[in-house]
Design a protein around this nucleic acid. Structure first.
Lengths: 211, 211, 211, 211
DNA sequence: TATGAATGAGCGTTCATTCAT
DNA sequence: GATGAATGAACGCTCATTCAT
């Protein structure tokens, strides 16, 4: 990595941390500069604007994420269940690697997507929804997932469940990202309930019984 | 409701909507005023500051929420499963009634809690965690919930899963709040998976089999 | 005094007190109203503006002052020494009666005099200077005051000496206004020094010795 | 003086001039900025707030003043008369050098002293009173000043008389600061009156006659 | 007479950004 | 590459003033 790009990455990492901590709007370029050890004006040698820093942070995150996702989604050997598992694991790994960027994405994306400059967020969200919903639908179709699943709702449920973890997850904590992914998957797939105790009234339709 | 209090409530409702949409920091009092149909300065006849509006919005929301929660938590007739169900339903009803306030809480609480003025948020979060974790622990103890549950993780999972819905839920949409609560509960309790497909590797311990 | 005028006087008295305490610019009509027991807007039933209250306070004070001064200055029986004494006594009585108004005059007059609306202050100051300087000059001419007196300087000295007392004098304190006037006169006329100890070097010219 | 400090001093000098002319409260930072040739916001690169400018102006003035006063008060060779003379001369020199600062002090100190931030003004006023009153009392005790002197009153008389001059004194005028100090001293020490004309009624006690 | 709600101008201050050095 | 001083727009807020009731 050339000197120049390394410095940019370093500064963006600082910026992402502050954006995640204080929110984009409440972050001043002064505190970014201060944490990076230079003066506010000097940031403008490296970046056009505060907004362009944000954009670069989000693009970098999404590029990395989609590199991982594309490998998974392109793997025809994976059934819907394994695909879902792989997507969740990949997502937690992304949180592990680019936690602040994920937190910024989670907090700011909806609002930013309205601006032309950040239209790529809207695209990403659409692709994102496609990937997850397709996987869920495949799973319902082939009997891996519950036939009574409301796919739209389940998509949101999964999406929020995974990304919101970025706001509390800290690398080097009690659990590894993969361990947390495993726990999440267990809850999402099987529920927190002991199966036999579920009163039938909870469901609109009886489960298809495996034979 | 006296004239005065009604006007306050009206203005707070507008403010909550803008805070939820743009974020507290990115919201200007001029925007609030514009949407409320008066001038920025006039807001200060009713409120001390932008911050005091935020505080009142959050306090009002938490008061309403705890009124509901306390009734549930104080009901000794409820088992952990019914308690959890009631808490989720109550939460979605709160989202239905005070959606913007919930979204603001969800977005801003962590950051605000550091200020002395918003210390009540820290208390609320602690009480909140107590309520959910105690319920989960009771459920694990009496066999309603899975014995291998990581309660800390499950708590976060539930908390985020429920509240994050405030950022997309709109009253009057396709589903009622109670319907969505039901769907969420179904996913959370039973998982999205069809039972027999769960590979045993997912779990640390085999399920207790009903006899 | 008609009801109406009495209320005005009452409100102006409150206003003068606040102006004296906080300064005209730092005084808000809200605190005047509050101390008078009504709401800010209600003051505008009685007065056109904050500025018109100030004007009325200053005019009332100057009218009263000149009533006293004119009687003294018109008394041909008084020598310069007695005239000066009478002016000082009258001034302290004015401070005793309208202390806050005097303090406001002392603090604000110089700055206000630049506005057309307050041109009467400039006139008053000119008349004021005339009265005192004429008295001093008469005294120098007839041997009552020191022949080496710089009249311009002595005028300022006297003027400041007297009016500045308004900023600390409180009616009902240790000394009456007349007693303070007496003490001031004693210092101004005779100095604080024991005469014989004055080294001759202090003076530019030897004193004319009375025969 | 480093570049930075010089710029601060320059801006503070402008600010002091405006504060003295319009009063602190009536002064807007935009006026200060305009006279200094920059924009209002740019002042905040150099100072924290309008109030901090005021504080620095007053502290600088008091530091300079006390440097002079301490030298005088610490000189054991000076009798009360020479001490008083030296204090007055030093005060007028201070007016000559920092006229606007003195005028601001004179106008605003009483009101400001109530704020914790300006508690140093209260201290200064106490030290000030100590210095002058001690000098006066020493003079009365050793026969330099009139035995019938009301020291409290005389202190106020001297204090106001001297400092109020800051509101009209302009450097480079007809008289030098030292010349004005001399005239003031002559009036304060010996009075404006020619001795023999003093009616005995003015005094409560006869003068001690030198033998 | 007084109130209560509002206006609108302007205030002190912040902050992303620029640019000569 | 970075600094330091400045810009200029906008922000939260204040306050004298208005006016229907």
């Amino acid at each position: 990595m050339p000197e120049r790009a390394a410095r940019r990455a370093e500064l963006l990492s600082v910026a992402a941390g502050v954006f995640a901590e204080l929110g984009y709007s409440a972050t001043t370029v002064r505190v970014i500069a201060e944490r990076a050890g230079l003066l506010a004006g000097s940031l403008y040698y490296h970046f056009d604007s505060k907004e362009s820093m944000l954009e670069e942070i989000l693009r970098t995150f999404l590029d990395a994420l989609w590199t991982g996702y594309d490998a998974i989604l392109g793997d025809r050997a994976l059934g819907p269940r394994e695909t879902l598992r792989a997507l969740v694991v990949e997502s937690f790994r992304e949180i592990d690697r680019h936690g602040p960027a994920v937190a910024v994405f989670q907090k700011e994306a909806r609002q930013l997507a309205a601006q032309p400059r950040f239209a790529f967020l809207t695209e990403a969200q659409r692709d994102f929804e496609d990937a997850w919903r397709t996987t869920l639908e495949r799973g319902v179709a082939d009997g891996a997932f519950r036939p009574d699943l409301d796919v739209r709702l389940a998509y949101r449920f999964l999406r929020d469940t995974v990304w919101v973890a970025a706001s509390w997850y800290r690398p080097g904590g009690r659990h590894t990202a993969d361990a947390i992914a495993g726990q999440y998957l267990s809850m999402v797939l099987d529920g927190i309930s002991v199966r036999s105790t579920i009163p039938t009234a909870t469901r609109s339709r009886p489960w298809p019984r495996p034979t």
